[in-house]
């Protein structure tokens, strides 16, 4: 009778000690996502487009996200931000002027509890966007 009781005691004591013992990522790293390869990430998430038509580019971003099965959750034309979501995945795209004749487009996605860091995912997004912008340019002419 004594041995099972002692074993139970050890179990309870250890579970109390172990509670909250998970090795945690430091708070600054959790908030700022620091410690990542920011340059590599930035280059895969960013593209320059030779156009000054910011509103047109934003419309193309919206169309591309919808083609990729995202539901648009937020769009602000003045700020140049479009957000989309589909089950288990979220994406934010910003379109900012770079100089007078170029636009810089940055996309970042999140899947589950982690940022999407596969270059292929962004390559596919930008390929679809390039296609949409090319088509749009021809339609506008």
């Amino acid at each position: 009778m004594k041995r099972p009781l002692a074993a139970l005691g050890i179990w309870v004591a250890l579970s109390l000690v172990s509670a909250g013992c998970a090795p945690l990522v430091p708070i600054s790293q959790r908030v700022l996502d620091s410690g990542k390869e920011t340059l590599r990430l930035r280059s895969m998430q960013t593209r320059l487009f030779e156009t000054a038509d910011r509103e047109g580019a934003l419309r193309d971003v919206v169309a591309t996200l919808r083609d990729l099965d995202f539901t648009i959750t937020k769009a602000d034309a003045v700020l140049g931000v479009v957000s989309g979501a589909k089950p288990g995945m979220r994406i934010t795209v910003t379109v900012a002027p770079r100089g007078e004749r170029r636009l810089i487009v940055r996309a970042n996605a999140e899947q589950g509890m982690a940022p999407v860091e596969e270059p292929e995912a962004y390559q596919r997004f930008f390929a679809a966007l390039e296609k949409a912008m090319f088509l749009t340019a021809h339609q506008a002419d």
Binding site: L41, T73, V81, T92, E110
Partner: peptide
Amino acid sequence: QAMGFQVD
């Protein structure tokens, strides 16, 4: 965005 946030 660079910090991995999604705009809500």
